[in-house]
Design a protein around this nucleic acid. Structure first.
Lengths: 341, 341
DNA sequence: CTGAAAGCGCTAACAA
DNA sequence: TTGTTAGCGCTTTCAG
């Protein structure tokens, strides 16, 4: 992209006034040329556009946003990017938005900055919408979301009783599906590895899982908290093997923990996967498919989830918040070698 | 964060004028109160601040940016986020910037959007600086970078002969270090797995590696291109084992490929790690430390690299570009079980 | 359909 | 130290 040869110092940007002068029209004409379905003559528009491209002009989104309150930016609030699922989400959002000419502003809490402080900041930037993911909204935050001047969507999260839109995979159905799968395959002593306490994802997955086991006459599974981390999975595996009744299947609330479980089992030794114990995860991150792990998991349809999120964000034409809706996208069990169904 | 009870509809934001009225001062006083070391009486400032917190006011960065040309945003251009090294980079940037009150605008090329188109867009948003990473700048792009009105830094990338600042790890020294390590440990037939053709990182790592081998009287290593992906590593392992002279060490230009190599070796079978063949990577991503892999690798000091990048971006007080400088941060070999030094 | 003028929320000269 | 004024680059009434 060669810088426009407009004779200006590289410090200055070409402005609408420059284009107007070059095209022999008023500044408003330039504005209209760049405003979809504004009342402007075809001929005028093309003259403006011609001058614009010649000068390398494009409207300043900041100045525009100051008036229209539409800056072309979507805020993404995420507190941790270490779980590989979230980079994948981030990328999907980035690509989807990019093709619509919108950009992502990433808000990550700093050292000891609370997540709640981020929302007002984001709103201050005039973002057109806010997506909150990989973060547990506090009560304060929930209230702030409800009174935000733009649509807010919780991604992969839900808050009971709050009037906030949410998009996620059907975690409970996923947990249930996994339970059914294990039960039908004759597993008798499944165990569960939970994520962070209070995370809605882990909670619903566990709920569905437990319900499925109960329905089949199995007891509530032993559980261990793995904090959604690989190390947590490692520890969980070791502790679960210490039980009097060793489990013959382990369902971890996300893939990264499940991989930790697999590695933990290997390290402890004695139990083979899948001969002695099965392992199932949730997410279907890239590493789950690596031969060393070949993890059976429940795939979250990231693309569809992102698409639904954007649909909600864009469903308001005047930029105002929309009535909250919750969308649960169905996922799908991917069987690999960590189970032998 | 409870919404401010200022009697305004939730659609309107509190403005400097509101605060001024509440504090009984002029709008400029409000502005000055929020401008570091502006000439304002302590007393006035505290009065303003009090009113501001009461109303939940904070300056609109967009309006401010329109004048100061400092929007508080840094643009991050990255074309792929699948290599886990980059999410780590992203997070480090996000946290570091967050604590300085700055935000990241993420620019990822959409479907078939060229990377070059992103720079002007970013500049249009009035970003204070641009970081380009995980993307190979074209000649056009280089020119655009050189004439950008704000500092531009290439992260983990260098472009020969271009007047652009760059921050990276000393890839050549790293490659050399790995060669020395292998040679000193008696490895005789090392091989190399390259990343994408034309990527400066892969190039320099290979250069140092080859130089080290040559210095020790070993021939130029057989090489295979792995495209910086896990699958590429898998294939590379298989192809390298097909050689008449099977390698007794494999250095992959990044960790994700090295992990693929490890898995490929496992899948093919016959060769044990590290007894028969050593594997070394580059980056030190989280998965490298997982027990299943326990990959020896060259750690890139992300934190320092990010710090240096920000130092360059901020070294200009008036926001203008700074004379280009290249910073090479030293890395460090992390020995794990994929080698037996 | 078009241009002139007002103003989004803020900062930066300038006087006072 | 303060308030007043102008104006960043743009959109949007409002006349014409």
């Amino acid at each position: 992209m060669t810088p426009p040869k407009n004779g200006k110092s590289k410090m200055e940007r070409t402005t609408a006034a420059d284009v107007a002068r070059a095209a022999g029209v008023s500044i408003s004409a330039v504005s209209r040329a760049f405003t979809p379905n504004a009342s402007i003559a075809k001929q005028t528009k093309s003259r403006v556009m011609q001058a614009a491209t010649a000068l390398g002009y494009q409207p300043n989104p900041l100045a525009r946003g100051l008036i229209t309150r539409r800056s072309g930016m979507i805020a993404l609030l995420m507190s941790e990017v270490t779980n590989p699922f979230y980079p994948a989400v981030l990328e999907t959002f980035a690509r989807a938005l990019s093709s619509r000419g919108k950009r992502i502003m990433l808000f990550t809490p700093g050292e000891d900055e609370p997540l709640e402080a981020l929302l007002p900041q984001a709103l201050g930037y005039g973002v057109e919408g806010v997506v909150i993911t990989s973060a547990r909204p506090t009560a304060e935050m929930t209230a702030a979301c409800e009174s935000a001047p733009v649509p807010v969507v919780l991604f992969n999260r839900t808050v009971e009783g709050a009037a906030i839109s949410a998009v996620g995979c059907d975690n409970e159905a996923g947990g249930r599906k996994i339970a059914d799968f294990l039960v039908e395959s004759g597993r008798k002593r499944p165990a569960f590895v939970a994520g962070l306490a209070g995370a809605s994802t882990s909670l619903y997955r566990e709920r569905g899982f437990t319900a499925g086991l109960t329905a089949a006459g199995l007891p509530t599974p032993p559980r261990h908290v793995g904090d959604f981390t690989f190390e947590g999975g490692l520890r969980a595996a070791e502790e679960l093997l210490d039980l009097k009744e060793q489990p013959d299947a382990i369902f971890a609330a996300n893939d990264i923990m499940a991989l930790g479980v697999l590695d933990g089992l290997r390290r402890v030794g004695g139990l083979r996967v899948p001969e002695d114990v099965w392992v199932v995860g949730f997410d279907d991150i890239a590493a789950a498919a690596w031969p060393s792990f070949s993890l059976t998991t429940f795939r979250q349809p990231i693309k569809r989830m992102v698409a639904e999120t954007l649909r909600i964000l864009e469903s308001s034409d005047d930029g105002a918040p929309v009535p909250p809706s919750t969308v649960l996208v169905p996922g799908r069990l991917i069987e690999r070698n960590s189970t032998a169904g």
